[in-house]
Amino acid sequence: MQFFTPTPTLVGLRRSLKAVGKFARELFSRPPTAAGTLTVLFFLFLAVFGPQIAPYPDPNFQKNPSQEAPTLNLREFRLGDYPFGTDRLGRDVFSRVILGTRSIFRAAGLGTLIAVIVGTFVGLFIGYQGAWVDEIVGRIIDAILAIPALLLALVIIGIIRNLNFEPNSWQSEVADNAVLIVIAIVYAPIVARVVRSATLEIKSRQFVEAAQIRGESPLYIIFREIFPSVIPALVVEGALRFSYAIFLVASLGFLGFGARPPSPDWGLMVSENRGGLYALTPWALEYPAGAIALLVIGVNLMSDGIKRTVQKSG
């Protein structure tokens, strides 16, 4: 008899760790995917450690606001100076771009995560249940998806914002996180639809039938038998949603429906520095716009690579 028998969960854990490792190795074997993933990781790093890295951790720091003319100091790239210049209010663009990563990752990343979790539950449930539940929820999802994501987001945020709440109440919390919540609302139905069709396909396989005959409960079948097979489709969809979410958060910020001034939000920075003053401080617009483009390209390359890897192994 053995002294140590690995428990089933430990074996499962090790096996999934191995799968993740293999997945990561394959992901990094294609140069474009590797570049995209590294870009995303770089921005993620900035999002986590931004306040420690930025030369001016206070995004609204103004050095002698009254005297300071906008400056661009690229020739002498010294940290602690203004490598990306200052905007018209004398704020350091370099610091603000770094600090802005956190808000975009928070809204797009967390929003997508919530959308994926909610969408998975709904999709698994209606896919497995089928019949009239599927029919009704499916129609509701169709109706939501008929409204373009940006329009839906604008309307919801506009309405939430126009309501007056007591400060520090839960409603004002909701209003402050409107973008994050909207991302979740807009993308959960799409995820649900993808998971639903994957579930429909897996439901008819024999191992599910076997579990049904064994008399397992529906919950057990949904989460232990069907869910693992849905994961590949879910990973692909999640990555795709994340790239759309970043796009959407940036657009909302630009339109004035995202973070409020003076937050260092990329879309907001672009819209604050456009117009007649552009000729004065073009760099204050170019760097946040460039950061948005770089992050979206990175996420696109990464999600494209994830899709390829999943399709190859699955």
Binding site: V270, V296, N300
Partner: peptide
């Protein structure tokens, strides 16, 4: 086309 798709319309 990938870079065009990556640029938000306002950019």
């Amino acid at each position: 086309s990938l870079s065009v798709v990556s640029l938000p319309e306002f950019v």
